[in-house]
Amino acid sequence: MVTVGIDPHKHVHVAVAVGADGRRVSRPLTVKNDAAMIGVLLKWIRSVADGAPVTWAIEDGRGFARRLADGLLLAGHEVLWVPTRLMAAHRKLHAATGSKSDPIDAAAVAHAAIATPGLERHRIDVQVRELRVLVDLRADLVRRRTMVINQVKACTHLWLDHTPGDLTRAPGLASATTLLRASQMSGHVRRALAEMLSETAGLNQRIRDLETTIRDLVSPLAPALLEITGISHISAAVLLAEIGDITRFTTSAKLARYTGCAPIPVYSSDNQRHRLHRGGNRRLNSVLYTAAIVQKRFHPDAHELLARHEPTKGARGARRILQRHLIDIIHRAMTQDRASWKHHITQHQLAA
């Protein structure tokens, strides 16, 4: 059995092959992150493994390594994701004190994969891959729109002593345009502000079009998830894009830890307490925070839960309890949606 640990980067990936006894079986390989990398890696590992089964372990930097993982999986190999913290722990165990390099990190990834059964395996889901691209694009457009709107408001406040209203909607843009035309300012300033307002209108339209596309894609994939109060189509798309196959989280507790909603025990002796987990996927944590705020306003059961815990835990502590409770509901809903979707695919294949 050979485990290949890979330390991914933007331009190159560094691979180290480790045997079942934990010893390196070859020199490290550095491969360019281009279209030929899969062929180079497979040719190299065939000469190294000598027919032994191979498992590929990649440090969990999916922005750089997703294409690599997809290529290896499509080539018929097993691909594992190793959390960065786990890799760092094994680097301290196996490397000299204070030493760090790409080959050392790659070897630590392989050692972590050998020592930790049950690591997440890479999967390819076409629908989730499409959603991930659209969700990331929407987030980028929203950031750009926020930047332009802030510039518009700063400039109009300087020249007009007035800050326009909500520029993400048509009435606010129309009001700002009318105010701009009636103001006394130089032609250069008026033209610059008009261009910024025009860019804001274009970004608004692009975001609305993306949201329509996302709604059409999410609706058949997550009907149970969308029934949860506080989970919009955009929130559901983020959940699907970040989590992917919900079956990789066998319990809701594992999902809670992944999202940063599971409190961390820090007690000793007779002093039992927990502290807030500041790690986890922050995008998912933001979705759960928003859902908790919405449920606080509109869901009677959530309001009752918060009222029960606020006297002892405070407002923030009670909200975190609600977020942890929402994880259980979301895990059940996504599991139900996954089973329904697989059944639909199976029936479609049988009919064909």
Rank of each mutant, 00 (worst) to 15 (best):
L160C: 07
P117L: 06
K32S: 15
R138Q: 12
R297G: 01
G39S: 10
N271E: 14
R143E: 14
L160Y: 08
A106G: 06
C155D: 05
K32I: 07
I45A: 03
R169L: 14
D7F: 01
L41C: 02
H325C: 08
H122K: 01
E199I: 02
G280K: 07
D209L: 09
L210C: 10
R123C: 08
R169A: 15
T55Y: 01
L225D: 04
A292F: 10
H343R: 02
V266R: 11
T97A: 15
D161E: 15
R338D: 00
D209Q: 12
I243D: 02
S183C: 11
R23D: 04
C261D: 09
H309C: 06
N285K: 14
V40Y: 05
V294T: 12
S26G: 10
D125L: 09
P83G: 07
I246D: 00
A65C: 04
L210R: 08
A113D: 01
E211R: 06
Y258D: 00
A351C: 09
G22L: 10
G279S: 12
T200F: 02
N204G: 13
V133K: 03
M147C: 09
L158Y: 08
Q336N: 11
L239M: 13
N281Y: 05
A174D: 14
A110P: 07
L68V: 15
A52F: 04
F298T: 12
R316F: 14
G61D: 14
W341P: 00
I228M: 04
I149G: 01
N204I: 03
R62Q: 10
R283Q: 13
A95W: 00
A302Y: 11
E310R: 12
A69L: 07
W341S: 01
K10T: 08
L68G: 04
R308A: 14
R138Y: 03
T116A: 03
V25W: 00
S26Q: 04
A224K: 08
V109T: 12
I327P: 05
L119F: 05
D21N: 13
L284H: 02
